[in-house]
Amino acid sequence: MPLTNPWLAGPTPAGRLDRERLEERILNLLSSQNMCVLATTGPDGPIATPVRYYSLDFSVLFTVAPRSPKMRNIAADPRVSVGIFAPLVGLASSRGAQVFGAARVLDPGHPDRAHYWEAFRWENEHAERGRPLSEPPEDTLVVVEAERIVYTEHWLRREGLAPRQFWRR
């Protein structure tokens, strides 16, 4: 049987991307997807929640309902992990990132909110809900600024590079 991707069959390479190329690939992934899985820890253990997100540099942004389980968990322990991935067709197309950081809750009056809010495309959600675009929402915004990222891309093996790469702020 012929191998469609023979470079996947050999031993896993160990080469590392230089920081600039790694950052470019991470930013491409973050900006080309819009769904993530947010992992928080609560009193009953971990909770993983699918969330629609937007990105700004190495930050992941999303809104939350003030009384949601993820908000209660963030208030108790702001350390979170965010999983972001591209659609998978096969191992050769495997591409994703685990983003680790502390979640910052920015209420409507928070002085840092405007900086992040500009990257948040709230108009899409307003249109879906039939809300007027003339009235921006006052939702609570959560920002996860990446402290470290584990980036996975199996296509890197073609260049003799490890499919798992590591980034730190």
Rank of each mutant, 00 (worst) to 15 (best):
W7S: 05
W7V: 01
G10N: 02
G10M: 00
P11Q: 10
T12E: 07
T12N: 04
T12P: 02
T12Y: 00
T12V: 11
T12F: 00
P13Q: 06
P13H: 05
A14W: 08
A14R: 14
A14I: 14
G15E: 08
R16G: 08
L17A: 02
L17D: 01
D18F: 01
D18E: 06
D18R: 01
D18W: 00
R19D: 11
R19P: 03
R19I: 03
E20Q: 12
E20D: 14
R21A: 09
R21Y: 01
R21M: 04
E23W: 00
E23L: 05
E23F: 00
I26T: 01
I26F: 00
N28A: 13
L29K: 01
L29W: 00
L29E: 01
L29T: 01
L30E: 06
S31L: 06
Q33T: 04
Q33V: 02
N34E: 05
N34K: 09
N34H: 13
M35N: 03
M35Q: 11
C36S: 09
C36A: 14
L38V: 07
L38P: 08
A39R: 01
A39C: 08
A39N: 02
T40V: 12
T40K: 04
T41C: 09
G42Y: 04
G42H: 05
P43H: 06
P43N: 05
D44T: 15
P46L: 10
P46H: 07
P46Y: 06
I47Y: 05
I47E: 10
I47C: 07
A48I: 05
T49V: 14
P50F: 08
V51Q: 09
R52G: 13
Y54F: 09
S55Y: 03
L56W: 08
L56C: 08
S59V: 04
S59A: 14
S59R: 03
S59M: 04
V60H: 12
V60D: 10
L61N: 03
F62G: 09
T63M: 10
V64S: 15
V64Q: 11
V64D: 07
A65P: 07
A65Q: 15
P66Q: 14
R67A: 13
R67S: 11
S68P: 11
S68G: 12
S68F: 14
K70H: 13
R72M: 12
N73T: 06
N73P: 09
N73E: 13
A75L: 15
A75C: 09
A75W: 06
A76C: 07
A76S: 12
R79T: 11
R79Y: 08
R79A: 12
V80M: 02
S81Y: 06
S81M: 12
V82E: 04
V82S: 05
G83V: 10
G83K: 03
I84H: 05
I84M: 12
F85S: 11
A86F: 01
P87R: 10
V89C: 03
G90C: 07
A92E: 14
A92L: 00
S93G: 04
S93F: 04
S94L: 15
S94C: 10
A97P: 00
Q98M: 13
Q98G: 06
Q98R: 11
Q98F: 03
Q98W: 07
